[in-house]
Every structure is written in structure tokens, then in C-alpha cells.
Design a protein around this nucleic acid. Structure first.
Lengths: 130, 130
DNA sequence: CAACTTACTAACCTTTTAGTAACAATCGTG
DNA sequence: CACGATTGTTACTAAAAGGTTAGTAAGTTG
């Protein structure tokens, strides 16, 4: 309603879409947020096992960045062996419904998209390039 | 409601969040969809100028993939010099509100996130690693 | 006492993504 | 006849993202 387009408002760090994409466009952040939204508190190894194919390094890095931005709360228990629990902050929780909407859209429409893609590839041969 | 978690349901290509992320997690797709949703029909060069810092190659590649998936309609006019117009399909339009919700969340919360991040970095020195 | 545990860190390597530069195609204009 | 206009393509290169492996701490179990 208020944001004007047409003359490079998109440049720089001010475009909200870019900001969101920069923050959450990586491979794991949104996945972890969704997982925590379902499961509440989880330990490091529980997250690792549930996701299955995330490397230890990427889990560490992603959790640390989520913690740094205040989306996830990390609670450390100085036991042996150590225990760490992660859960969503209120800020993190506030993002969840939007993610779920997007996921729902995906569930509804991804089949169509994949069909379109296949059909497009098939008729690539008869493409009018110019 | 129906999707169970806890045993690697997330693996593979079935998780809807992954599917959406795989499709739209790139640098330009969502930006272009948002732009077209505001401006309606746009020519290649108009998109390029409005975004400002996209390379010709990435614009070509991104538009082609959006077209292939049926999110964008490409209309080619065999003139000299050639003219091509892009606009959102119905499928593409159906995605827009979800993107805008996410953008709105970003506008509301990104400042907080950046503050959190700054504060986190500052007290990194006194971090209890173990 | 060796193996195992958890949640990491650090060094290194590979893969993916995006950017740059050069060129194509075609017609009208100077 | 070289040039510009428009929408691309192709090959090459740089940078970012992510994966692999090894190692650490310190106590518990066999």
C-alpha cells in the first residue's frame, strides 16, 4: 500500500523480501523452526536424527545463527555428557504460521508445478527462441 | 495435523517445506514474482532495470525456470528488435499473498532480529561454551 | 583402561550458485 | 558499413554454501 515500486526501491538491504530471503533462504533454518514448532523442546542429537541428513556442522551453525537472532532459545545443562535443549522463542513462534501457509501452498500446488516442468521440458525442442 | 514427525519424515523430496525451499529459495524467483504482481506485464529490460542489480544471465535463467514451472507466462513478439512480455499466471498469482505475508512479518520483526544479532555478538566473549 | 557418550570446534575439501564478458540475430538508421 | 536496440546464449571464473574428518572435554560403563 505504501511501498512504491518502479524505481529501484528493491536495491540495497531495505526490501523486506530480500531481508527475509537473506535470513531464511538457507537450507536448514526454516526446516529447524518448523521442527521445533511441532516438537517443542529438542536436544541437539534429536534434531539431528529427525532431520536425518543434516551434517553436524550445519546443525551447529544453523542453530547458532537462529539463537543469535533470537528465534531459538538455547538452554545448556552442564552435565556429563553435556545436554543442550533448543526451543522456539516467541519471535520464532510468530514466524511459524507463515511458514505453514507456504508449506500448505506447496502441498497443494507442487504437483502442478512438477507437471508443468515436465511438459515444458518435453516441448523444449519446438521452442521459438527468436 | 496428519504429518507425523519423529522418524525422518523430512527426508527425501516429500517434505513440503523442502519442496518450496528448493523451488523458491534462490536469490531472484520470489523477487520477480513480487515485482510482476505489482506491475502486471513487464518486458525483460523493464524487470532488469527495476531490480537494478540482477545480471542478464540470472534474469534469463530465473524467468525461464518460472516459465517452465507455469508460474510466469512469457509472450514473445517476433518484431525487430524482439519484444518479450512476462506476467504472472494464475498459479503464480496464488503464491503472492503468502509471499506478502512473509514480507510483512519481515518488516515488522527484522529490526528486532538485527538488534538481537548485534547484542549476541557483543556478549559472545562471555559465552559458556561447555 | 578402553570404549562410549554429547555437543561441539577447526581445518580442509567439494559442490552449488551467481557474476562477467563475449558473442548471436536482425533490422533500421546515420 | 558500422552501430545500436533487445533478448538472449555460452564459456569461464569467483564466491558462497555446505560436507567430511579429526579432535576435545570429562565422566560413565564393561
Amino acid at each position: 500500500m505504501s511501498r512504491k515500486i518502479g524505481q529501484k526501491i528493491w536495491i540495497g538491504g531495505t526490501c523486506p523480501i530480500r531481508q527475509v530471503l537473506d535470513r531464511f533462504g538457507d537450507k536448514w533454518s526454516i526446516l529447524i523452526i518448523e521442527l521445533l514448532s511441532h516438537e517443542g523442546k529438542l536436544r541437539f542429537s534429536e534434531i539431528a536424527h529427525t532431520i536425518g541428513d543434516i551434517s553436524q556442522k550445519m546443525l551447529t551453525v544453523t542453530l547458532r545463527s537462529l539463537e543469535s537472532d533470537g528465534l531459538v532459545i538455547r538452554q545448556f545443562f552442564p552435565e556429563i555428557p553435556p545436554r543442550v535443549e533448543y526451543e522456539l522463542s516467541e519471535l520464532g513462534k510468530s514466524l511459524v504460521p507463515h511458514i505453514q501457509q507456504l508449506a500448505a501452498w506447496g502441498q497443494t500446488n507442487m504437483d502442478t508445478i512438477l507437471e508443468n516442468r515436465k511438459r515444458f521440458e518435453e516441448k523444449q525442442q519446438s521452442r521459438t527462441a527468436y
